[in-house]
Write a protein that binds this DNA or RNA. Structure first.
Lengths: 341, 341
DNA sequence: CCAAATTTGATGTACGTAAATCAAAATCTG
DNA sequence: CAGATTTTGATTTACGTACATCAAATTTGG
């Protein structure tokens, strides 16, 4: 049987009330007594029954998800997953709400974060814009004792408790190796389509991609990055243009969102050429393109996993519990046409 | 605020005792009254507070994991993950125990299952040996109302509630495409190393592999399957022999466990040749081989995820709750040297 | 050493559900 | 319609923890 507060009291030779004072850091306990109780807790291996505690407290966790107001497929999906979590939230004693902030706008983000500092929710998850003032705002929250996790995009050097997202450098490296191996030693040029180099995940993916390309596939040269702003129209125009001008292109790496334009350009311009294409984010469009052979591989992060992981971690932090690291690691999914979910 | 049993009572105009009788399917409630209560439950959207219920019941889930007594790295890892879960089990109100059965021995497995039928644990997870008598034994348990999930290896046509493992046909197909693309149109022979064709996962992987190879990479021919019995020594001997005899081998697919022998053979015999190698299961050995270039890609199923998923599903089934399908899908991990965890 | 302050104990209620008991009411049987 | 039977209500205790209150014991300061 699992030890209870009564067992602590008996073991430490004190009353239940004193145990309670120690457990919940209430005042009015002499130092020696406190230590006696803490020793007993350690010795009998007591672990608070979180379910019973939450029941007694009538606690509901209030979590806030701060998401950028960009309307690409991935962010839509992420938004949807948060809504799914909200639908389930009454059952899980959580109260989740979302706040939309303009994308790539550090000041707006900082303002929201500062406001939340007063409100003191049980936890905050945010898609971080990587800027020093955002880092400072997050650090203030953490210092205030509010659990904070970054979602999808991390925050350099901040004290956030956890990052629920993939390793984007590794993602870029993986894309490079897949592309390089698929091209099997051929010589040619690689077009890279990004959303914006101002976004940290995109920068990191490119960094990893370029590193492996340079080191291991010297016969392939990377063309200057095309910034499509995650906008299908812009991407379509720029990619179509590049394909017309450069006949040496034999591969494409699309590391951002807004692949709809890319796919359209590929279908128009590359029917005659055999391009090898690696793209990020599994959506209805990229899935179809993978199946019909326009895209050769898709790298993906599972938004549902990221959201659920963020919630689990926030809960654990709010309860002062440890997280299972291996469980919370967000994996990079590699999809070929054969292993689509 | 979330509705409680009191709210049901008020809404249905009955007493708490009657609500309890309906909720916990106790006898002594007239049909019309029962329906009245059930209607109220639906209308106010009541969901039982599982935490409070378990607290009141003093319930601990007793789960049994039936694992084969084979000593390859993967099964070791699986065993370890179950032990990790056991270590955490007191905190989660679960009582998990493992039973080892001889591998590939349907009768032994059936005997254990029948014994468990009398004992009536809260749930059973088993690495299934795919045989009709095992299926029948599982179906008996399911009919008896005991939650059953298959782990790693599924059971054809059975009524098990869930399968916590990867889609092995898709895994084989993925391996074929990776190998085919990595070889980039070259012509040659592919050696396939399996554990035993008596194991369902191995058969399925081969099936998927052969299908894609035949359909999409006709320049590659698959040699007769080498059965290494998941034993490093046997595998080493057989692979070394094959490599000596067949000079046309340009690729290897190792779909079973026991890769230690394979790797040794590759290092001895293939220093001069450039083989493309795809293997299953990430272990210390395969990881090292991937990093030093002996292996080109590793397909993996995360044993920790499988075990945790099995437990979550068993719990949900024991409580009569729905599972989050997307969360419980076990993904096929593809590791290149760049995205190792 | 006494009064004041601090520490500790004893006790009760609450959270939402399960489970049991006993009495009261409704329904059925002959 | 009486009596047996079934159904329903009312009430209590319990699970493990949180939190509050009041009294008792202990320590501290002057």
């Amino acid at each position: 049987m699992r030890p209870t507060v009564h067992d602590i009291a008996a073991a430490a030779g004190v009353s239940l009330a004193t145990v309670d004072r120690v457990l919940n850091q209430r005042p009015g306990v002499r130092h020696v007594t406190r230590e006696k109780v803490e020793k007993a807790i350690r010795e009998i291996g007591y672990v608070r029954d979180v379910a019973a505690a939450n029941l007694a407290k009538g606690r509901t966790y209030s979590f806030v998800f701060i998401l950028p107001a960009s309307d690409n497929s991935f962010m839509h999906g992420l938004n949807g997953e948060v809504r799914v979590a909200i639908a389930r939230s009454s059952v899980e004693r959580t109260n989740i709400r979302t706040i939309e902030v303009p994308a790539f706008d550090p000041r707006a983000l900082v303002q929201i974060l500062d406001e939340l500092g007063d409100e003191r929710p049980s936890g905050i998850a945010l898609v971080a814009t990587d800027a020093p003032e955002v880092r400072d705002a997050v650090d203030r929250l953490v210092q205030d004792g509010i659990p904070v996790v970054t979602l999808v995009s991390d925050l350099t050097g901040s004290q956030r408790h956890h990052y629920a997202g993939v390793d984007n450098i590794a993602a870029g490296r993986t894309a490079a190796r897949l592309l390089g191996r698929f091209l099997g030693g051929a010589r040619g040029e690689i077009a890279v389509l990004a959303g914006s180099m101002l976004v940290r995940d995109h920068r990191e993916r490119l960094e990893g991609f370029a590193a492996v390309m340079a080191a291991e596939f010297p016969s392939l040269s990377i063309l200057p990055v095309i910034e499509g702003r995650d906008d299908p129209e812009v991407a379509h125009m720029l990619v179509a243009d590049a394909l017309s001008r450069k006949s040496g292109i034999i591969g494409v790496y699309s590391l951002g969102a807004g692949n709809r334009g890319l796919i359209r350009a590929l279908k128009e311009k590359a029917v005659d050429r055999s391009l090898t294409v690696i793209a990020h984010e599994l959506t209805a469009h990229t899935r179809a393109a993978l199946l019909d052979g326009t895209i050769d591989a898709i790298l993906n992060q599972d938004a549902g996993h990221e959201v659920r992981s963020a919630i689990r971690v926030l809960k654990a932090k709010a309860d002062g519990l440890a997280v299972i690291e291996a469980q919370e690691r967000i994996r990079l999914d590699i999809f070929l046409k054969d292993n689509l979910p």
